[in-house]
Amino acid sequence: MKKRLNIRISGLGGQGAVTAAHLLAMAANKAGLYSISNPFFGAEKRMAPAESYCRIGPERIYDRGELVYPEVIMVFHPQVITLQKSYTAPFYSGIKKNGLIIINTSTDLLTEEDHQRLDDLNVAVYDIDATSLALEIGGTELSTNMAMIGACAGITRVVSLDELEKALQDRFGKKYVASGGTATLDEAIKKKYAKKEMLLKKNMDTIIKAYEIATEWAQNQKQEMAVQ
């Protein structure tokens, strides 16, 4: 990759937006790229807006904090758009020309005006029903974040499936340090699957499936995307 990829993730507390950013960054780190990830610094609560950021690039990254001008925006929950559970209005403010927006939804959530403005910036919009995919393959909606990073990797190719798997192992395969709320959720996930191995496999399967679908979509796109 030639230039920096800035990814902004908007979701709701409990969806794993922070974990998603960390996983993408760790995968990039495994790939020998430079990366930095951080959450929006708030008192995160379940179902309240949550945001995280991931910066990946071929040279040392210093920039940190809230990402104001992203190339990629991921929306983890329809309420980010429909109920304005977003730190910005509209949720895509600051998106760069030729950028990419990935939305977890089963229907189009954007208004005519939104479409027009994004078209003017040549921003591609990819709707994916990540929650259904997570339920179907991961067996829990808690794997929605896996589907989303799979889709992101499938389109941008910023990290490979192999590197994502390594990051997943790092994150869940060994003891990981997370803030109170995140640690509790991890425990919830672990209990649900009973076995850690199973958890890792199902999450990886979710990532792979989303990666494949998104890859196919990207190949059919006629649009020039800044993110590839």
Binding site: M26, S35, S37, N38, F41
Partner: peptide, 11 residues
């Protein structure tokens, strides 16, 4: 600086 350093993953 809080968060920029404490909560950011870096090499």
């Amino acid at each position: 600086d809080g968060f920029f350093v404490t909560h950011t993953k870096d090499t």
